Deep mutational scan, measured.
Amino acid sequence: MALNTPQITPTKKITVRAIGEELPRGDYQRCPQCDMLFSLPEINSHQSAYCPRCQAKIRDGRDWSLTRLAAMAFTMLLLMPFAWGEPLLHIWLLGIRIDANVMQGIWQMTKQGDAITGSMVFFCVIGAPLILVTSIAYLWFGNRLGMNLRPVLLMLERLKEWVMLDIYLVGIGVASIKVQDYAHIQAGVGLFSFVALVILTTVTLSHLNVEELWERFYPQRPATRRDEKLRVCLGCHFTGYPDQRGRCPRCHIPLRLRRRHSLQKCWAALLASIVLLLPANLLPISIIYLNGGRQEDTILSGIMSLASSNIAVAGIVFIASILVPFTKVIVMFTLLLSIHFKCQQGLRTRILLLRMVTWIGRWSMLDLFVISLTMSLINRDQILAFTMGPAAFYFGAAVILTILAVEWLDSRLLWDAHESGNARFDD
Protein backbone atom coordinates (compact mmCIF):
# COMPACT_ATOMS: atom_id res chain seq x y z
CA MET A 1 0.00 0.00 0.00
CA ALA A 2 1.50 3.27 -1.08
CA LEU A 3 1.44 6.35 1.10
CA ASN A 4 0.32 9.58 -0.52
CA THR A 5 2.51 12.38 0.81
CA PRO A 6 1.54 15.93 -0.15
CA GLN A 7 4.10 18.01 -1.94
CA ILE A 8 5.14 21.27 -0.30
CA THR A 9 5.77 24.06 -2.73
CA PRO A 10 7.64 27.09 -1.39
CA THR A 11 5.79 30.34 -1.78
CA LYS A 12 9.03 32.28 -2.29
CA LYS A 13 11.84 31.48 -4.64
CA ILE A 14 15.04 30.37 -2.84
CA THR A 15 18.24 31.68 -4.40
CA VAL A 16 21.57 30.08 -3.59
CA ARG A 17 24.69 32.08 -4.38
CA ALA A 18 28.18 30.68 -4.31
CA ILE A 19 30.83 32.40 -2.23
CA GLY A 20 32.98 34.18 -4.74
CA GLU A 21 35.84 35.09 -2.41
CA GLU A 22 37.60 33.58 0.55
CA LEU A 23 36.17 34.34 3.97
CA PRO A 24 38.38 36.74 5.96
CA ARG A 25 40.77 35.09 8.36
CA GLY A 26 41.71 36.43 11.74
CA ASP A 27 45.15 37.44 12.90
CA TYR A 28 46.85 35.19 15.41
CA GLN A 29 47.29 36.65 18.85
CA ARG A 30 48.70 35.40 22.15
CA CYS A 31 46.98 36.33 25.37
CA PRO A 32 49.41 38.27 27.60
CA GLN A 33 47.80 36.78 30.71
CA CYS A 34 47.52 33.06 29.89
CA ASP A 35 49.69 32.76 26.73
CA MET A 36 46.97 31.08 24.68
CA LEU A 37 47.39 31.37 20.92
CA PHE A 38 44.13 32.03 19.10
CA SER A 39 42.77 33.63 15.95
CA LEU A 40 41.46 37.14 16.51
CA PRO A 41 38.88 38.22 13.91
CA GLU A 42 38.60 41.75 12.61
CA ILE A 43 37.06 44.00 15.24
CA ASN A 44 35.05 47.10 14.51
CA SER A 45 35.20 50.28 16.52
CA HIS A 46 33.46 50.25 19.90
CA GLN A 47 33.87 46.45 20.04
CA SER A 48 35.97 44.61 22.61
CA ALA A 49 37.62 41.20 22.37
CA TYR A 50 38.31 38.75 25.19
CA CYS A 51 40.57 35.75 25.49
CA PRO A 52 38.54 32.54 24.92
CA ARG A 53 40.35 30.79 27.78
CA CYS A 54 40.92 33.24 30.65
CA GLN A 55 38.47 36.00 29.58
CA ALA A 56 41.16 38.68 29.74
CA LYS A 57 40.39 41.75 27.64
CA ILE A 58 42.54 41.57 24.51
CA ARG A 59 41.17 44.57 22.62
CA ASP A 60 39.33 47.51 24.14
CA GLY A 61 36.62 49.14 22.05
CA ARG A 62 36.86 52.44 23.92
CA ASP A 63 39.19 54.58 21.87
CA TRP A 64 39.56 58.33 21.53
CA SER A 65 41.53 60.18 18.93
CA LEU A 66 44.83 61.68 20.00
CA THR A 67 43.43 65.17 19.39
CA ARG A 68 40.60 64.58 21.85
CA LEU A 69 43.01 63.13 24.42
CA ALA A 70 45.28 66.15 23.98
CA ALA A 71 42.35 68.51 24.51
CA MET A 72 41.51 66.72 27.76
CA ALA A 73 45.16 66.83 28.82
CA PHE A 74 45.45 70.59 28.24
CA THR A 75 42.21 71.18 30.17
CA MET A 76 43.55 69.11 33.07
CA LEU A 77 46.80 71.06 32.94
CA LEU A 78 44.87 74.31 33.35
CA LEU A 79 42.96 72.94 36.35
CA MET A 80 45.99 71.54 38.18
CA PRO A 81 47.32 74.79 39.72
CA PHE A 82 43.89 75.57 41.16
CA ALA A 83 43.26 71.99 42.34
CA TRP A 84 46.63 71.74 44.09
CA GLY A 85 47.29 75.31 45.19
CA GLU A 86 43.88 76.72 46.10
CA PRO A 87 42.26 75.81 49.46
CA LEU A 88 40.34 72.54 49.44
CA LEU A 89 38.86 73.14 52.89
CA HIS A 90 38.48 76.06 55.31
CA ILE A 91 38.31 75.47 59.05
CA TRP A 92 37.84 77.85 61.96
CA LEU A 93 40.07 76.67 64.80
CA LEU A 94 40.31 78.70 68.03
CA GLY A 95 38.90 81.70 66.19
CA ILE A 96 41.45 81.50 63.39
CA ARG A 97 40.70 80.54 59.81
CA ILE A 98 42.99 77.86 58.37
CA ASP A 99 43.14 76.91 54.70
CA ALA A 100 44.31 73.48 53.55
CA ASN A 101 45.47 72.47 50.10
CA VAL A 102 47.32 69.56 48.54
CA MET A 103 50.74 71.20 48.40
CA GLN A 104 50.56 72.38 51.99
CA GLY A 105 49.91 68.87 53.31
CA ILE A 106 52.86 67.43 51.40
CA TRP A 107 55.07 70.29 52.61
CA GLN A 108 54.07 69.63 56.22
CA MET A 109 55.09 65.98 55.81
CA THR A 110 58.47 66.95 54.38
CA LYS A 111 58.99 69.74 56.92
CA GLN A 112 58.62 67.34 59.83
CA GLY A 113 61.55 65.27 58.62
CA ASP A 114 59.86 62.53 56.60
CA ALA A 115 60.60 63.52 53.03
CA ILE A 116 60.25 59.94 51.77
CA THR A 117 56.65 59.62 52.94
CA GLY A 118 55.91 63.07 51.55
CA SER A 119 57.39 62.05 48.20
CA MET A 120 55.05 59.02 48.11
CA VAL A 121 52.03 61.29 48.41
CA PHE A 122 53.54 63.81 45.99
CA PHE A 123 54.09 61.22 43.27
CA CYS A 124 50.61 59.67 43.49
CA VAL A 125 48.68 62.96 43.68
CA ILE A 126 50.84 65.42 41.72
CA GLY A 127 53.70 63.64 39.98
CA ALA A 128 51.81 60.84 38.22
CA PRO A 129 48.92 63.05 36.98
CA LEU A 130 51.42 65.64 35.74
CA ILE A 131 53.41 62.96 33.91
CA LEU A 132 50.15 61.70 32.39
CA VAL A 133 49.16 65.03 30.83
CA THR A 134 52.70 65.85 29.68
CA SER A 135 52.99 62.39 28.10
CA ILE A 136 49.78 62.88 26.12
CA ALA A 137 50.98 66.32 25.04
CA TYR A 138 54.33 64.80 24.04
CA LEU A 139 52.54 62.22 21.88
CA TRP A 140 50.49 64.93 20.22
CA PHE A 141 53.48 67.14 19.41
CA GLY A 142 55.91 64.28 18.85
CA ASN A 143 53.69 62.64 16.27
CA ARG A 144 53.81 65.81 14.19
CA LEU A 145 57.55 66.34 14.65
CA GLY A 146 58.55 62.72 13.98
CA MET A 147 59.95 62.11 17.48
CA ASN A 148 60.50 58.73 19.13
CA LEU A 149 57.25 57.89 20.96
CA ARG A 150 58.15 54.39 22.18
CA PRO A 151 59.40 55.30 25.70
CA VAL A 152 56.28 57.35 26.43
CA LEU A 153 53.92 54.64 25.17
CA LEU A 154 55.69 52.02 27.30
CA MET A 155 55.38 54.24 30.37
CA LEU A 156 51.72 55.19 29.91
CA GLU A 157 50.28 51.72 30.52
CA ARG A 158 52.21 51.34 33.79
CA LEU A 159 51.40 54.88 34.89
CA LYS A 160 47.63 54.43 35.03
CA GLU A 161 47.44 52.70 38.41
CA TRP A 162 49.68 55.31 40.07
CA VAL A 163 47.33 58.21 39.31
CA MET A 164 45.38 58.32 42.59
CA LEU A 165 43.41 61.55 42.48
CA ASP A 166 40.16 59.65 43.03
CA ILE A 167 41.52 58.07 46.22
CA TYR A 168 42.69 61.47 47.47
CA LEU A 169 39.17 62.79 46.93
CA VAL A 170 37.85 60.08 49.24
CA GLY A 171 40.60 61.05 51.68
CA ILE A 172 39.27 64.62 51.72
CA GLY A 173 35.93 63.32 52.95
CA VAL A 174 37.55 61.15 55.62
CA ALA A 175 39.76 64.01 56.84
CA SER A 176 36.74 66.33 57.03
CA ILE A 177 34.91 63.91 59.31
CA LYS A 178 37.98 63.52 61.54
CA VAL A 179 38.52 67.27 61.87
CA GLN A 180 34.88 68.22 62.48
CA ASP A 181 35.28 67.18 66.13
CA TYR A 182 37.74 70.05 66.62
CA ALA A 183 36.62 72.79 64.22
CA HIS A 184 33.97 74.03 61.81
CA ILE A 185 34.65 73.02 58.18
CA GLN A 186 33.69 74.66 54.90
CA ALA A 187 34.52 73.70 51.30
CA GLY A 188 37.08 75.86 49.53
CA VAL A 189 37.25 76.99 45.93
CA GLY A 190 40.03 74.50 45.24
CA LEU A 191 37.71 71.60 46.02
CA PHE A 192 35.58 72.32 42.96
CA SER A 193 38.67 72.42 40.76
CA PHE A 194 39.91 69.19 42.33
CA VAL A 195 36.59 67.40 41.70
CA ALA A 196 36.62 68.58 38.09
CA LEU A 197 40.21 67.35 37.74
CA VAL A 198 39.26 63.94 39.15
CA ILE A 199 36.37 63.62 36.69
CA LEU A 200 38.49 64.59 33.68
CA THR A 201 41.30 62.27 34.75
CA THR A 202 38.95 59.32 35.21
CA VAL A 203 37.33 59.87 31.81
CA THR A 204 40.72 60.28 30.12
CA LEU A 205 42.16 57.11 31.66
CA SER A 206 39.08 55.09 30.71
CA HIS A 207 39.42 56.16 27.05
CA LEU A 208 43.22 56.06 26.85
CA ASN A 209 43.75 52.96 24.71
CA VAL A 210 47.52 52.56 24.63
CA GLU A 211 47.38 49.48 22.41
CA GLU A 212 45.49 51.41 19.73
CA LEU A 213 48.08 54.18 19.96
CA TRP A 214 50.76 51.58 19.26
CA GLU A 215 48.79 50.47 16.21
CA ARG A 216 48.55 54.03 14.90
CA PHE A 217 52.13 55.10 15.45
CA TYR A 218 53.98 51.81 14.87
CA PRO A 219 51.80 49.45 12.81
CA GLN A 220 53.16 45.94 12.32
CA ARG A 221 52.21 43.12 10.01
CA PRO A 222 50.17 40.65 12.10
CA ALA A 223 50.73 36.90 12.07
CA THR A 224 48.30 35.25 9.66
CA ARG A 225 49.30 31.62 10.22
CA ARG A 226 49.46 29.61 13.38
CA ASP A 227 52.95 29.08 14.76
CA GLU A 228 53.81 28.05 18.31
CA LYS A 229 56.99 30.12 18.09
CA LEU A 230 54.96 33.32 18.14
CA ARG A 231 55.54 35.38 21.28
CA VAL A 232 53.57 38.18 22.88
CA CYS A 233 55.27 41.34 24.09
CA LEU A 234 54.17 42.47 27.54
CA GLY A 235 55.17 46.04 26.72
CA CYS A 236 53.02 46.71 23.64
CA HIS A 237 51.02 43.42 23.43
CA PHE A 238 52.21 42.72 19.89
CA THR A 239 52.31 39.05 18.87
CA GLY A 240 55.11 38.14 16.50
CA TYR A 241 58.69 36.96 16.17
CA PRO A 242 61.69 38.61 17.84
CA ASP A 243 64.11 40.50 15.63
CA GLN A 244 67.77 39.62 15.17
CA ARG A 245 68.61 41.12 18.56
CA GLY A 246 65.82 39.22 20.34
CA ARG A 247 63.66 42.33 20.73
CA CYS A 248 60.04 43.11 19.99
CA PRO A 249 59.92 44.57 16.46
CA ARG A 250 57.49 47.28 17.59
CA CYS A 251 58.58 48.57 21.02
CA HIS A 252 62.18 47.24 20.96
CA ILE A 253 62.17 45.67 24.43
CA PRO A 254 63.52 42.10 24.88
CA LEU A 255 60.93 39.56 23.74
CA ARG A 256 61.11 36.66 26.20
CA LEU A 257 58.91 33.65 26.81
CA ARG A 258 58.28 34.79 30.40
CA ARG A 259 59.00 37.93 32.40
CA ARG A 260 62.60 37.84 33.57
CA HIS A 261 63.14 37.12 37.29
CA SER A 262 59.41 37.46 37.92
CA LEU A 263 59.23 35.11 40.90
CA GLN A 264 62.43 36.40 42.51
CA LYS A 265 61.34 40.04 42.38
CA CYS A 266 57.82 39.19 43.50
CA TRP A 267 59.05 37.17 46.50
CA ALA A 268 61.47 39.95 47.49
CA ALA A 269 58.80 42.65 47.37
CA LEU A 270 56.25 40.48 49.17
CA LEU A 271 58.56 39.46 52.03
CA ALA A 272 59.74 43.04 52.48
CA SER A 273 56.13 44.25 52.65
CA ILE A 274 55.32 41.62 55.29
CA VAL A 275 58.21 42.86 57.43
CA LEU A 276 57.11 46.49 57.01
CA LEU A 277 53.46 45.78 57.84
CA LEU A 278 54.40 44.79 61.41
CA PRO A 279 55.71 48.22 62.54
CA ALA A 280 53.09 49.87 60.33
CA ASN A 281 50.33 48.38 62.47
CA LEU A 282 52.07 48.34 65.87
CA LEU A 283 53.63 51.82 65.92
CA PRO A 284 51.56 55.04 66.06
CA ILE A 285 50.61 56.38 62.66
CA SER A 286 49.23 59.72 63.91
CA ILE A 287 49.90 61.90 66.96
CA ILE A 288 47.59 64.65 68.27
CA TYR A 289 48.77 67.32 70.71
CA LEU A 290 45.83 68.82 72.63
CA ASN A 291 46.45 71.39 75.39
CA GLY A 292 49.96 70.07 75.94
CA GLY A 293 48.84 66.43 76.08
CA ARG A 294 49.96 63.80 73.58
CA GLN A 295 47.59 61.22 72.09
CA GLU A 296 48.98 58.50 69.83
CA ASP A 297 46.88 56.39 67.49
CA THR A 298 47.77 53.24 65.61
CA ILE A 299 45.86 52.36 62.46
CA LEU A 300 43.38 50.23 64.40
CA SER A 301 42.86 52.65 67.30
CA GLY A 302 42.36 55.51 64.85
CA ILE A 303 39.67 53.51 63.07
CA MET A 304 37.95 52.76 66.39
CA SER A 305 37.90 56.44 67.36
CA LEU A 306 36.57 57.33 63.91
CA ALA A 307 33.81 54.72 64.29
CA SER A 308 32.40 56.60 67.26
CA SER A 309 31.47 59.52 64.99
CA ASN A 310 30.84 57.81 61.64
CA ILE A 311 30.76 54.04 61.35
CA ALA A 312 30.48 54.07 57.54
CA VAL A 313 33.64 56.12 57.03
CA ALA A 314 35.43 54.01 59.64
CA GLY A 315 34.48 50.94 57.62
CA ILE A 316 35.98 52.46 54.47
CA VAL A 317 39.24 53.26 56.26
CA PHE A 318 39.32 49.75 57.81
CA ILE A 319 38.93 48.14 54.39
CA ALA A 320 41.57 50.35 52.76
CA SER A 321 44.14 50.38 55.59
CA ILE A 322 43.88 46.90 57.15
CA LEU A 323 41.77 44.53 55.08
CA VAL A 324 43.23 45.34 51.66
CA PRO A 325 46.98 45.20 52.57
CA PHE A 326 46.69 41.92 54.47
CA THR A 327 44.42 40.43 51.81
CA LYS A 328 46.97 41.29 49.14
CA VAL A 329 49.77 39.68 51.14
CA ILE A 330 47.78 36.49 51.76
CA VAL A 331 46.64 36.23 48.13
CA MET A 332 50.10 36.86 46.68
CA PHE A 333 51.68 34.40 49.13
CA THR A 334 49.13 31.77 48.07
CA LEU A 335 49.68 32.41 44.36
CA LEU A 336 53.45 32.15 44.64
CA LEU A 337 53.23 28.90 46.58
CA SER A 338 50.82 27.47 44.00
CA ILE A 339 53.37 28.23 41.28
CA HIS A 340 56.25 26.64 43.17
CA PHE A 341 54.28 23.50 44.03
CA LYS A 342 52.69 23.34 40.54
CA CYS A 343 49.15 23.35 41.87
CA GLN A 344 46.61 22.24 39.26
CA GLN A 345 43.40 22.83 41.20
CA GLY A 346 41.47 26.05 41.67
CA LEU A 347 43.05 27.86 38.73
CA ARG A 348 39.94 29.92 38.03
CA THR A 349 39.83 31.11 41.65
CA ARG A 350 43.51 32.08 41.60
CA ILE A 351 43.14 34.06 38.38
CA LEU A 352 40.16 35.95 39.83
CA LEU A 353 42.10 36.65 43.05
CA LEU A 354 45.05 38.03 41.08
CA ARG A 355 42.78 40.39 39.14
CA MET A 356 41.08 41.45 42.36
CA VAL A 357 44.31 42.44 44.14
CA THR A 358 45.47 44.21 40.98
CA TRP A 359 42.40 46.45 41.14
CA ILE A 360 42.14 47.10 44.89
CA GLY A 361 45.82 47.49 45.74
CA ARG A 362 46.10 51.23 45.14
CA TRP A 363 43.30 52.05 47.61
CA SER A 364 45.57 51.33 50.56
CA MET A 365 47.19 54.74 50.04
CA LEU A 366 44.03 56.32 51.47
CA ASP A 367 45.44 56.52 55.00
CA LEU A 368 48.51 58.50 53.93
CA PHE A 369 46.35 60.95 52.00
CA VAL A 370 44.15 61.50 55.06
CA ILE A 371 47.21 62.15 57.23
CA SER A 372 48.68 64.59 54.70
CA LEU A 373 45.51 66.68 54.50
CA THR A 374 44.86 66.59 58.26
CA MET A 375 48.40 67.84 58.96
CA SER A 376 47.71 70.97 56.92
CA LEU A 377 44.40 71.55 58.72
CA ILE A 378 45.40 71.12 62.37
CA ASN A 379 48.69 72.76 63.24
CA ARG A 380 48.39 75.25 66.11
CA ASP A 381 51.67 74.51 67.93
CA GLN A 382 51.12 73.04 71.40
CA ILE A 383 47.47 74.10 71.75
CA LEU A 384 46.24 71.73 69.05
CA ALA A 385 48.47 70.04 66.51
CA PHE A 386 48.38 66.92 64.35
CA THR A 387 51.43 65.10 63.07
CA MET A 388 52.19 61.69 61.62
CA GLY A 389 53.84 58.93 63.56
CA PRO A 390 56.70 56.61 62.55
CA ALA A 391 54.26 53.99 61.21
CA ALA A 392 53.35 56.22 58.25
CA PHE A 393 56.60 55.52 56.43
CA TYR A 394 56.40 51.75 57.01
CA PHE A 395 52.78 51.67 55.89
CA GLY A 396 53.40 53.65 52.69
CA ALA A 397 56.45 51.56 51.81
CA ALA A 398 54.50 48.33 52.39
CA VAL A 399 51.65 49.49 50.15
CA ILE A 400 54.01 50.42 47.31
CA LEU A 401 55.87 47.11 47.60
CA THR A 402 52.65 45.11 47.41
CA ILE A 403 51.62 47.05 44.29
CA LEU A 404 55.00 46.27 42.73
CA ALA A 405 54.73 42.60 43.73
CA VAL A 406 51.44 42.28 41.85
CA GLU A 407 52.85 44.13 38.85
CA TRP A 408 55.98 41.95 38.69
CA LEU A 409 54.13 38.62 38.84
CA ASP A 410 53.82 37.04 35.39
CA SER A 411 50.34 35.51 35.44
CA ARG A 412 51.35 33.05 32.72
CA LEU A 413 53.37 31.19 35.34
CA LEU A 414 50.08 30.15 36.95
CA TRP A 415 49.11 28.49 33.68
CA ASP A 416 52.54 26.87 33.34
CA ALA A 417 51.99 25.24 36.71
CA HIS A 418 48.61 24.02 35.51
CA GLU A 419 48.37 21.02 33.21
CA SER A 420 49.20 21.85 29.60
CA GLY A 421 46.65 21.87 26.81
CA ASN A 422 43.65 23.09 28.83
CA ALA A 423 41.27 25.05 26.67
CA ARG A 424 39.08 25.84 29.66
CA PHE A 425 39.77 26.30 33.32
CA ASP A 426 37.54 25.71 36.31
CA ASP A 427 37.66 24.62 39.89
Rank of each mutant, 00 (worst) to 15 (best):
I43V: 09
E22P: 09
E215M: 07
D114I: 08
Q186I: 10
C248W: 00
D410G: 00
L79Y: 15
K229E: 09
R294M: 02
L414G: 07
P151W: 02
Y182E: 06
P32A: 11
L347E: 13
I403N: 04
L300Y: 13
H261F: 05
N281L: 03
G396E: 02
I126N: 10
D297M: 07
K57I: 11
L384H: 02
C124G: 05
G85D: 14
A423V: 09
I131D: 00
M332Y: 06
Q344V: 09
A280I: 02
S372P: 02
T349D: 05
A175E: 02
C251S: 03
R294K: 09
M356I: 08
H46K: 11
G127F: 01
Y241M: 05
I330T: 13
R226E: 04
D114F: 13
N379L: 03
A307K: 14
V399A: 13
P325Q: 03
P6Y: 07
F395E: 00
M36T: 12
I91G: 01
Y50L: 07
V125D: 07
G20S: 09
P325E: 00
I378K: 00
T67R: 13
R380D: 00
I126L: 09
W162H: 01
R158G: 14
V102Q: 14
N379A: 04
L384S: 02
I96A: 08
T402P: 05
G127H: 01
D63W: 15
R412C: 00
L271G: 07
L270T: 11
R231G: 04
A71H: 03
L283S: 05
L353T: 13
G302K: 00
S376R: 14
A385E: 03
L79A: 05
F333Q: 09
D416A: 09
W415D: 06
C31I: 00
R150V: 03
T374Y: 08
G190P: 04
R348T: 10
G302W: 00
W140K: 05
E22Y: 12
T239G: 07
H261W: 01
A2R: 11
N148I: 01
S364M: 00
N44Q: 09
R62D: 11
Y50D: 15
T402S: 02
I172L: 12
P32F: 12
L413P: 07
P284Y: 04
V179S: 14
L277H: 01
A196N: 14
A385I: 04
S321I: 02
L306C: 04
N44W: 08
W162A: 01
Y182C: 07
A417S: 11
L88E: 02
F82V: 08
H261R: 03
F217Q: 10
S286P: 01
Q180V: 13
L277W: 03
Q112F: 03
T204E: 05
I319K: 04
D99S: 12
Y289F: 07
S301K: 08
R380E: 00
Q344W: 14
L283P: 02
R68S: 02
L347T: 09
L414I: 08
G146P: 05
P219C: 09
G171Y: 00
I177P: 13
L153G: 08
I383A: 02
F194V: 10
T202E: 15
R424A: 15
V16G: 10
N291S: 15
F318R: 00
D297S: 05
T67H: 13
L377N: 01
V189T: 12
A423Q: 15
V16P: 15
E296P: 09
Y168D: 06
G389M: 01
F217I: 14
R247I: 04
V357Y: 00
F326W: 15
A49C: 11
L335V: 12
G190Y: 03
T202Y: 15
N143M: 14
L3E: 11
A175G: 05
A280K: 04
V189N: 14
D410R: 00
G85C: 05
G142I: 02
Y168R: 00
T358S: 08
